[in-house]
Design a protein around this nucleic acid. Sequence first.
DNA 1: AGCACGCCGACT
DNA 2: GTCGGCGTGCTC
Length: 807
Amino acid sequence: MFAQIIVDVPTMQTNQPYTYAIPDKFVAVVEAGMRVVVPFGKGSRQVQGFVVGLQDDYHGEVDLKEITDVVDVAPVLNAEMLELADWVARENFAFKISVLQAMLPNVMRAKYVKTVQLRDPALLETDAMLRDFFTDRFEVPLDDNHVTPEVLTALHKYARLGQVAINYQVGNRAKIKLVTAVKPILSAEKYDEIRQGLRPTAKKQARLLTYLMTASPNWIAQKEIIDATAVDYTTLKKAETNGWIQKGEIEQYRLPKLTSAITATEPLPLTEQQAHVFTTLSENLTDDAKSQTYLLEGVTGSGKTEVYLQAMATVLAQGKTALMLVPEITLTPQMVRRVKSRFGEAVAVLHSALSDGERYDEWRRIERGEARVVVGARSAIFAPLQDIGLIILDEEHDASYKQEENPRYHARDVALWRASYHRATVVLGSATPSLESRAHAQQGQYTLLRLTQRVQTQPLPPVSLVDMRESIKSGSDDLFSNELLEALRQRLARGEQSVLMLNRRGYANYVSCRDCGFTPTCVNCDLALTMHKVTNSLICHYCGYQEPIPKTCPNCGSQRIRPFGAGTQKVEAMLKEYLPTARVLRMDQDTTRKKGATDGMLEAFGNHEADILLGTQMIAKGLDFPDITLVGVLNADTTLALPDYRAAERTFQLLTQVSGRAGRADKPGEVIVQTYNPEHYALRFAQTHDYEGFYQYEMAIRKEWQYSPYYYTIQLKVLHESQTESARVAYEIADWLKPYLDLQTVMLGPSAGSVARLNNKYVYRIVIKYRQSAKLFEALDELMQAGQRLQRQKVTLLIDRDPVNFV
DNA sequence: AGCACGCCGACT
DNA sequence: GTCGGCGTGCTC
């Protein structure tokens, strides 16, 4: 027997299965999808690998090595996942091993331990350095980072001479938590009999026996018994020696705790629109023969979640499973509680805040079929569910569904693949669908469903745009217009809550005219130019165009053209000044870094412990408090000026989302948006809550400028410590690629990255816009091979397909 | 990633 | 003459 194995060596040349012989003792054990340990390379270093196939015979030239060890007792990846891994790797120019690892909980990734073994003790006599290194041991762990280069060279020298040996071991970090458990082994009658015979003072023993009488004859965690009966450890020990019970160990899941108990809820009655959507979905939910994707375009408050829950219930009733993805920041306890209250124990939750152990346990609950509903962020799309009936992507437009590091998969694509494999239903839900998805619906690939009315039929809040140019002229400062301050004061007086969003995004600086709102844009791309202080220039991060920073505004001649940007801390301080009595809760990266901080703050706000919630974009999503009657957006323009062709789309989505936060209960809400570009179409359409209008308008622009969804994009990034070197390689690649591009393919750049230096590496990039992929992808595959050689020269080449942002 | 092979310069 | 620098190819 022979096994095809993908080894844990993430390089292009090793991105293929290697054949290994299966020793007799493992023949009956090894299956595809298991992790194994194999010798690899000249020194037969032990590495982890995944069995991706088995075969009975082998006719190749090479004499095969044998599998050293089998890590798993059962496959951790089934046939579906192995096939999916191949596809994800191919589509995203990623290594197979990286994809396989991304599919599994972190703890299942191999941990390598390097040790040095002293073979020739005589060395210690002659070499004082080695004496210090080995002290009194014969084998010591070797961590390259904690050993001086001198010692390292010496060790390598002795290793060549065979006087020391460098060993590689593969460790397993996945720890199953075991707890001491107790099992009743006698009948209830017998326990009763013993209890009757106890001395009257033996109260603890009596309590234990009473408990055992009614206990099921299964393993019970010791802690559970102690908690229930208030006996102590010695009582149980005695019970064991008396032969009343058996002691042992059982596996225990590390279940992430919720702060309060969950009460079961029933499906809510559906509105007419919801019912219509649900009925349409049901056609495919109950159809085992084909997969169908629905785009659910529903305004905030239209009750998408209730439709999701009932659709999930439908597939569960058929014995199938359901998967629901939400953006990480939306995955709040509130959200989890809502799903758990409907499906109870059947729900597993996967998100980044879990510890490695918790995540591993949730994964196993799913893998064993104990959890049939999964709620999670991006990576939960790889949840080991079987027989999936429904996959939901809520807030489907959200950029966090695309992984920004290798493997750079998009959860939406994976969802569609898995759904097609299981002939399952996909629901993409959003108040503001991505243009790509909306266009797919237009073309009929997706079925478009709409929820246009809010459940409680309250209207969407009126949105007013405050022209900051005017406001500043009339004496207000550039952070708070008089209109916004007045509105805040009103809410404060009425005891109502407000949300303020400072739409600060990243650190990209741009310049804008304080008098006319003009922001210099690229002549080729219609994108805002980014300010580079070092070179004193404005640069287009898309195509590389640059011009000097203007001293006066090219539009109105004003001298007040300057860099833009303000932080939450400054805003908080200003608020204190203007509204000294207001209790302000600030939510941003700084205040929410600690685990659980976000939940605590949202709870505090829900309990009216603050009047104003001030935050960055994170507050736009998913928070749902009835008493918010005012939403203020301090500077709507920052996302607009991002060097990204999706800037308008992002801005529209964000404004629409944050507007939906105002006035959800019986109180009407109001939204005030401060801007220097009140005439911009993204703001205009957001003002009237007109998604369809925005869609039509933006599509025309995308068509004209040849952007997605009319063209696909690929972004190549070249990184190197030296700017000239990364530029040189980028140009070399661009020249090499040119002959492979067809007439409909456009190459932009190379240009300097928007953050010119990242982790001390200079970034150059090339953007390719294309419609036909076959030839281009062949070229890129070849480029991947070349990328390996570049790696030697410390040049990193990244290939990002359909990048979601260019910053 | 890590190891060997091989070709160049600077030393015992 | 050899030790060791790192550029290149290969790992079942």
